[in-house]
Design a protein around this nucleic acid. Structure first.
Length: 854
RNA sequence: GGGCGCAUAGCUCAGUUGGCUAGAGCGCUUCCCUUACAAGGAAGAUGUCGGGGGUUCGAGUCCCUCUGCGCCCACCA
């Protein structure tokens, strides 16, 4: 047992205890216990290529408090850590760090050495490397990044078992990802299809519904006349449409109005001529057309937006694609479109084409009035800089209920199997699932990621036969179809007629991270870990990724296991600037977590994080950290104070040994706090548990300890002093354990002064005695109220709290006389009172006569 | 347009099935070196519980309604 320091301090305790916990394996998961005794956590893998910010500190602290609580409750806590290094951010980081780029057409080079390690010169041209080589470099870089992250997370005090970690691009993750995908394919839960797809022209990849976002962009309505092919000449023979995308006139395949719109009912079924390009298009009716938008009749182009796709599909319209995957107008005019007119925009970007088309319309008098500027929402890839376009391409999809009401209902029902914290977050999930309008697009036209583990045979003329994919054996996973050949073929048949070709695409990063329970739990890997941890107990995450990570994990678990992947989903809020805006990472003045750990101590930062209620956006507040530091500091000091009295003279039970009713009253109060804090933690409400515990703790220090201090010192009354010592030590032990999940460092430090083992392995406190045995929890409040009034009198007299009270006359109702008599000796000590008299009165009142100033 | 959340002291927030005089911390003011703690302690002031209506013996709490703020989704010619 370590000695109590003369001057307790929080400084430097983090590094000491991090090292000690590492050495002792304090947080090691016991993989031998059965599922019922395990508490398993589906930790969110942070993106390694970024940096950790206060948002991470905030939400990871929440999870850690729950993990620590469950551990103290006796559960074997499975708390792994993952790193998300799959996807665009890592791809960029590896490129910029090593001066290479991923090119799956390259051959693997054994023992490849990158041209640079860190900061290639600006004029360096990235050299192409094969995907396996790129992955090796990624592994290398991720290891560096991970060390930084691990250090910070340890400093934050996360009770993670660091022997269970994964990276979303590592071999085990690739194997799990490919296996899960192939099983989806085998069960027809995944399929490939040629279809219009939202497309980012800069990243040159398809984008899923969940990754889109709206941004307000300026645009302009252009009013354009379409001449009726068989109608009368002149004004009555034209239909006017409003469009914000005149550059798509060449892609126009129909006009559409609402079936009930009387203005256009006579025209349904007739044809008009598209200005400039001359193609004939029919006027059609569809409910999605809005009579109050523009002129009430719209042109349908292939494709200007997602509504065009719906119309195109439901009205069986022809395809006139003009936008290429690079965002430029295709070189050749579509069918029936005037080739000469089209030639003037071929090859232009969308923006350039719009300008050209508007000029041409204007010159030919085909623009009615001036364009009318509007601000309107436009769809973007969340990482993209230019609006999404829609192109037709072959993609892989996983069924998620977007096209199947039955599956959708099943997934909503899965959501109801999970307990949500806070409960209203379930609405967001339901809302998203019910609003889906297509299956989950999982293929991406990028190079870095988990390859789609499929090849296609080539026919006699070298065309892929997509309907007969070549599937690898599960035992061979992970594979890379860009370098591995399918069974029955040799590498020299790649790309040859009669040979094979690998699927060029990779899986969406969510397609892998949707499997974190499987990856972390060792699904289908040797050993029985998975059955001990799955379904997991807890999925902590931000509420902004319910539609992506949470929903996709649910979908994969539903398909593979027919159950929800976890029992509880705990959603964290965001950190807000003090001015209540979402804290922007881009802001230069944002402090780093490490600076705050050093300035206030880790526990203080954790205190701030823990004061944010579950799911509630919380203001960043260094003031709260100061309060947390005070709390941690107080804990050390009160521990020192209590322990200095030494142990009581015998080891009687609390019920026998705590004889003073004042002491018993304090313990009764504490028991109620234990019950409340336990209930709160079981409901994942760390903030409530903290609040209750903290309120008791300050009351305990400021009032109870002050009241009984003198008695505890008093060696002439050993029985009474022993009662206080017993009560103080019992309360201290309980409070240290109640605060351990929130303030792991200060509690461990204070605990170590009188224990040989970690507080984090200690049992979570239970009420010290059966209900009611300690008597009235309010009893101590009566003398404490008197003491407060005495203090007030001294303060008002501008005297020291040490000033002697010559005489204290208390008037009190008869029912509290007993309590006052019980506390009489303590009161006299604590208030330095010479003479104390209690009189009858209707209300509590005190009359304080201070001794003359000396 | 649909859904969800929030509104309590200058600030950040507690206030659970309705129940004594609405609380805490920060900040502010005053006092105090007191042998656990001056990076501390003691004390004080501060409220139309967003507005209106209703249920009730009783409403910050329940119901209706309005206002403001935020988020998610849909629409986006």
């Amino acid at each position: 047992m370590a000695n109590i320091p003369d001057k307790p301090t929080l400084d430097g305790i983090e590094s000491h205890w991090v090292a000690q916990w590492d050495a002792d394996g304090t947080y090691r998961f016991d993989a031998s216990v059965p599922r019922e005794q395990v508490f398993s956590i589906d930790t969110p893998p942070p993106t390694v290529s970024g940096s950790l910010h206060m948002g991470h500190v905030f939400s990871y602290t929440h999870t850690d408090t729950i993990a620590r609580f469950q551990r103290m409750r006796g559960k074997a806590v499975f708390y792994p850590m993952g790193w998300d290094d799959n996807g665009l951010p890592t791809e960029r980081r590896v490129q910029n760090y090593y001066g290479v780029r991923c090119d799956p057409s390259q051959h693997y080079v054994e023992g490849f050495e990158p041209p640079f390690r860190g900061d290639p010169p600006k004029n360096h041209h990235a050299i192409p490397v094969s995907r396996p080589n790129f992955l090796e470099l990624c592994d290398e870089l991720v290891e560096l990044d991970e060390q930084v992250f691990e250090e910070l997370f340890k400093r934050l005090g996360l009770s993670v078992d660091w022997s269970h970690h994964y990276a979303t691009i590592d071999e085990r993750s690739r194997r799990a990802s490919q296996r899960a995908f192939l099983r989806n394919v085998a069960r027809d839960e995944a399929y490939s299809q040629e279809a219009p797809t939202l497309w980012d022209i800069d990243f040159r990849t398809a984008v899923a519904q969940a990754e889109m976002e709206d941004r307000e962009r300026p645009g302009a309505y252009h009013k354009i006349p379409f001449a009726r092919t068989d109608g009368p000449p002149g004004e009555s023979g034209t239909i006017e449409i409003d469009t914000t995308r005149p550059e798509l006139l060449a892609a126009c395949v129909a006009l559409v109005a609402h079936p009930d719109d009387e203005r256009y009912q006579p025209h349904f079924g007739t044809t008009v001529t598209v200005p400039l390009y001359g193609q004939q298009v029919e006027i059609r009716a569809h409910e999605l057309a809005q009579p109050d938008k523009g002129t009430g009749i719209a042109m349908i182009c292939t494709f200007g937006d997602t509504t065009d796709v719906t119309w195109w599909r439901e009205l069986n319209l022809p395809l006139r694609a003009i936008i290429g995957r690079d965002g430029r107008m295709l070189p050749d005019a579509p069918d029936d479109v005037d080739a000469d007119a089209y030639a003037s925009i071929a090859g232009l970007t969308v923006k350039q084409a719009q300008k050209a088309v508007v000029e041409q319309l204007d010159e030919q008098g085909l623009l009615i009035g001036e364009p009318r500027p509007v601000q309107h929402p436009v769809k973007f890839y969340e990482r993209g800089d230019r609006p999404l376009e829609i192109v037709t391409s072959r993609q892989w999809y996983i069924r998620n209920g977007g096209r199947d009401p039955e599956l959708r209902a099943a997934l909503v029902a899965r959501g109801a199997e999970v307990t949500w914290h806070p409960g209203h977050m379930q609405h967001r999930y339901d809302n998203w699932v019910e609003g889906l309008n297509g299956d989950w697009l999982v293929s991406r036209q990028r190079f870095f990621g988990v390859p789609i583990p499929i090849w296609y045979p080539l026919d006699d003329v070298g065309e892929p036969r997509y309907d007969e994919p070549l599937i690898p054996d599960e035992a061979d996973l992970p594979i890379d179809p860009s370098t591995d050949a399918p069974a029955g073929y040799s590498e020299d048949q790649r790309g040859q007629p009669g040979g094979f070709v690998g699927d060029p695409d990779i899986l969406d990063t969510w397609a892998t991270s949707s499997l974190t329970p499987q990856i972390a739990g060792g699904w289908e890997e040797p050993g029985d870990l998975f059955e001990r941890v799955f379904p997991m107990d807890m999925r902590p995450q931000g509420h902004d990724i319910i539609r992506t990570w949470l929903f996709s994990t649910m979908t994969r678990s539903h398909h593979e296991f027919g159950c929800a992947p976890w029992r509880h989903a705990a959603l964290s809020g965001w950190i807000l600037d003090p001015d209540r805006k979402k804290m922007a990472k881009s802001k230069g003045n944002v402090v780093t977590p490490m600076e705050l750990f050093e300035k206030y101590g880790t526990d203080a930062v954790r205190y701030w994080a823990s004061s944010g209620r579950p799911g509630v956006d919380t203001a960043y507040s260094e003031d709260q950290m100061k309060v947390g530091r005070k709390l941690a500091n107080k804990l050390l000091n009160v521990t020192k104070f209590v322990l200095q009295f030494g142990a009581p003279s015998d080891d009687r039970s609390l019920d026998d040994g705590v004889t003073d009713p004042i002491d018993r009253s304090m313990l009764a109060k504490l028991d109620a706090v234990v019950v409340e804090a336990t209930e709160a933690f079981e409901a994942f409400d760390y903030a409530r548990a903290l609040e209750r515990t903290e309120a008791f703790f300050w009351w305990f220090c400021d009032n109870y300890v002050e009241l009984v201090k003198g008695r505890t010192y008093d060696e002439s009354r050993s029985e009474a002093a022993d009662s206080a010592k017993r009560a103080l030590r019992a309360a201290l032990s309980t409070v240290q354990r109640l605060l351990a999940p929130i303030l792991p460092f200060a509690t461990e430090e204070a605990w170590s002064w009188w224990h040989d083992t970690s507080v984090h392995g200690a049992p979570w406190p239970t009420p010290l005695t059966a209900d009611g045995t300690f008597g009235d929890p309010g009893l101590a409040d009566v003398p404490i109220e008197v003491l407060t009034r005495v203090r007030r009198a001294k303060t008002e007299a501008k005297r020291s709290q040490r000033a002697v009270v010559d005489s204290l006359v208390i008037t009190a109702p008869p029912e509290v006389h007993a309590a006052l008599e019980t506390g009489r000796a303590d009161l006299v000590d604590a208030g330095s009172i010479h003479d104390l008299e209690v009189l009858d009165g209707a209300e509590l009142g005190v009359e304080v006569t201070l001794a003359a100033d000396t």
